[in-house]
Amino acid sequence: MKFKFDWFLKGMLIAVALAFLWPAPGAKGGFLHPELLNKIGIALVFFLNGLGLSLAALKDGALRWRVHLLIQGCTFLVFPLLGWGLLKLSGGWLSPDLQTGFFYLCALPSTVSSSVALTVAARGNVPVAVFNATLSSLIGVVLTPLWMAWILGQSGGDFNVGPVIIDLLLWLVLPLVLGQLARPLLATWATRHKARIQIVDRLTILTLVYTSFADTVQQGVWSHYGPLVLVETVVGASLLFFIVLSLTRWLARVLGLPMAEQIAAVFCGSKKTLASGVPMAHLIFGANPALGLILLPIMIYHPLQLAVGGVLAQHWAGRPARD
């Protein structure tokens, strides 16, 4: 499985470039009315996620508790602790908003589609990947804002978690539940039009990326930073990724997991979701003018995890059948 610079990654670059060239429509008060557009977009993304989420598929991998503890522990404990350590080590090197962005990356749940797709390509344990990728996205609704409340409280920031949880329930959990409830009526239609649904989903996320950066540009946030901020983000995201990748693989070996489960653990435990991360950021950080800077680490991390994951999947797919 080779890494492809697909239309979605190209779309992210175009959305960011458009935000810098023409920020007014997507900034606060612009004619796109981002305050309303973003909420509708978030609800649409999670309704489609709920529509495509087969909870029945979780049963196949539910009993393998050791690998589940490893994956969820890496996602919601090891990753945030590494992020906290990075913030302590970086000291004054990173701007406060970029520090928030790095910890937000670490607090996010795992991906669903790419974790499962890479596990399939590498001949790993697919039921384990499906179970943990789905479970991670559900746990993240609660743990991600709680982790952000803790880290922002540590830095002396004012973060009222109550309204954030209400927003998450209203614009994220409710559409997800409605999508699930609609499955008996629309599951066959959704399966038949899966490719088109994915395009709508990705275009919605690109719209959210545009509005995130447009407001940041309009508020003049980027004028305070030079090209160095991009270099810092690439280095930090790469460091985090390879530490977690190596640690997850080592722990899977220590636990004596079969190779197929090790593969699922590595792919699920090292991934972070951009698809859910962008909408959640709008709900957690609200009208923060530095939202584009906060999202920069996950936007760098996303293509990195796909590129390295594709190489690993290709390598593991060629192992002897007896493994």
Rank of each mutant, 00 (worst) to 15 (best):
V116F: 13
G256S: 15
L283E: 04
S54M: 04
L69D: 08
A290Q: 05
G156Q: 10
P25Q: 07
C74L: 09
N125A: 15
L206M: 11
N132M: 03
I300M: 12
A265I: 06
V244F: 07
H302I: 05
R196G: 07
V217N: 05
Q99V: 01
P175W: 00
K2R: 10
Q314G: 15
Q154F: 04
P96D: 00
M148C: 13
L274G: 02
V278L: 00
T207R: 09
I40Y: 09
T211F: 08
L81S: 03
I151F: 05
T100V: 10
A57P: 10
R202H: 08
A129L: 12
G162A: 14
L230M: 01
L291A: 08
R183Y: 08
L295A: 04
A57W: 00
W147V: 05
R202I: 10
A122P: 14
A122C: 09
L152G: 11
G101I: 00
L18P: 11
W22M: 09
A313L: 12
P279L: 00
L172Y: 06
T191L: 14
D158V: 08
K272Q: 05
I139G: 14
C268T: 13
T100Y: 02
G157Q: 15
I165R: 11
S110A: 14
S110L: 09
A190L: 13
I263Y: 05
P227C: 00
V278K: 05
T144F: 01
L186I: 12
A27S: 12
G91E: 04
A195P: 10
A15P: 10
V308M: 09
A264H: 12
H282W: 08
M280D: 01
R66A: 05
A260Q: 15
A19N: 10
L293K: 01
P34T: 00
A182M: 11
P80A: 06
P127V: 09
D97K: 08
C106F: 03
L98Y: 09
G124V: 10
A17Y: 01
P23I: 01
D167W: 02
P80E: 02
T191M: 10
V142M: 13
L306I: 07
P127R: 09
T75D: 03
V164S: 05
A15V: 06
G318N: 13
L251C: 14
I151R: 05
S276D: 00
P96L: 00
G277M: 01
L206G: 13
S113C: 09
V67W: 03
L245T: 11
F79L: 15
L21K: 10
I165P: 09
I139S: 14
P145V: 01
P109S: 14
H193I: 01
I294W: 02
A214W: 02
P258S: 14
A307M: 09
V45I: 12
P258L: 07
A307P: 10
V116N: 15
K194A: 13
G26Y: 02
A281Q: 08
G52Q: 02
S54R: 13
F102K: 07
L169W: 04
L37Y: 09
L185S: 15
G83F: 02
P320F: 07
Y104R: 13
D60W: 02
P80D: 00
A321T: 12
L176Q: 10
D60S: 13
A57F: 04
S90F: 07
P23R: 08
L81W: 01
G91D: 04
L81P: 11
T273F: 03
R66W: 03
V126E: 02
I205A: 12
G124T: 11
L181S: 06
A264S: 15
